[in-house]
Each structure stands twice: as C-alpha cells, then as structure tokens.
Design a binder for these strands. Structure first.
Length: 199
DNA sequence: AGGATGATCGTCT
DNA sequence: GACGATCATCCTC
C-alpha cells in the first residue's frame, strides 16, 4: 500500500473543517514493531470557548499542545488506563483540537492484534483508547508535528471520499447537545451508535 | 497533602 | 444497558 505524506498546509486550521477533512486521511505509526496505520473514520471537534474542551480552563502542562500551532499531536491519558489522540487546531495561541475516535485498520494488523490482545479486526481501532493502544500512541508522542514526524504522521486520504455525517459527541456531560461528532456514513469501524440525536 | 474527576474499556447481566 | 477499575491531572486547603 502506498502511503503519501500529507503536504504541510493541506489541512484547514478551523476546528470543525479539520474534523471533517481528517475523515478518510490515514494515521501512520512507525515504530520498532513495524508500521501500523488506519483510515480515520470518526472524529470530534473541541472548540475554543467550548466547556467540553480541555483548553477551556486555560493552559496547563497537560494541554499545552492545544495552545500551540495547528496540526500537532495532542495525547493525554484518561481513566488511568487509556490514551486519547487529538490533532491540534486553530492558530498558535488558541486552544482547540480534534479527537480521533476510530480508525479502519489498514496496515500492520497483526502488530495491532498483539498490542491489543484481541483478534477481531473490528475491535482493533474502534474507540479512542483502543486505537492508541493498537498504534502504541502514548504521551511520549504528544506535541509532534504530524506533517514532519517520522514516528507519527498523516497520509493522504485513500479510497472513496468519505460521506460525512454528524451527531452529538460521545461520553461527555457538558455541552453534550452540540453536534460536533463527524463520521463516515455506513463505515463498520465506528466507535458508537450511528444515530445519536437528530442527525 | 488530599480529594474529585474523567473526550474509556472490558466484563457482566 | 450498567458498573467498576485505576491514576494523571487539577483544584482546594
């Protein structure tokens, strides 16, 4: 499979546009274990001035990447066990980002199976914590430039152009009504229900 | 220094 | 559908 790096400047800074543009792009992880990669099929936008966004209460050591330049990797740990991967958005100084919630596994499936401890392809990258485990993404990859890094980077979209649908976001209690989750219609590797609130 | 919280996951019913 | 694990992070004292 041919994976072509996304050219710098080829993604929008705007958080909602970025969340949609990322659908269909490929997230690539190169490590000692080999290459693992998946097609992004589900994202969520976390805006500046959004009570659900980690940046909402100001800059801290954890969320500093959100306030930096766009298109860097923001990785944080949740519930003591899982990591979540985001792409920073908006201009330098503004805190916002896009959570990647699910990938369609493309490359290195056996490595993913070993890391995840499960066999079913559908369970490898379906969910923000699962995809980080499958791609061995942790806090050491926080802040890397996704156009330039050699361990974690984005490749141009492959296959069909994603038919984008939207719904409310999953797993949050504040600002939960906002329809800021984006996903590819009909894709079998989505993390959550296809129909949440009026779509 | 201590307590509350969480952009989840796996297991059980 | 519901529940509890588990700990980094943040906030308050």
């Amino acid at each position: 499979m041919i994976l072509t790096r996304l050219a710098p400047g080829s993604l929008p800074d705007d958080t909602q546009l970025l969340a949609q543009a990322l659908l269909g792009c490929v997230l690539v992880r190169d490590s000692d274990d080999g290459l693992t990669a998946g097609r992004i099929v589900e994202t969520e936008a976390y805006l500046s001035n959004d009570p659900a966004c980690h940046a909402y209460r100001g800059r801290s050591e954890r969320n500093a990447t959100l306030f930096g330049p766009p298109h860097r990797s923001y990785v944080y740990q949740i519930y003591g066990r899982s990591f979540c991967f985001n792409v920073s958005s908006e201009a330098d100084g503004e805190g916002a980002g896009v959570l990647v919630r699910a990938l369609e596994p493309l490359e290195g499936l056996d490595v993913m199976r070993r890391r995840r401890g499960v066999q079913a392809t559908r369970d490898l990258c379906r969910g923000p914590g699962r995809l980080c485990q499958a791609l061995a993404i942790d806090r050491s990859l926080d802040g890397v430039d996704l156009f330039a890094d050699r361990s974690l980077w984005l490749a141009a979209s492959i296959g069909r152009r994603a038919r984008v649908r939207r719904s409310r976001r999953i797993g949050i209690s504040v600002a939960a009504h906002r329809r800021l989750r984006f996903y590819e219609a009909g894709n079998p590797y989505l993390s959550g229900p296809v129909r949440l609130s009026p779509a």
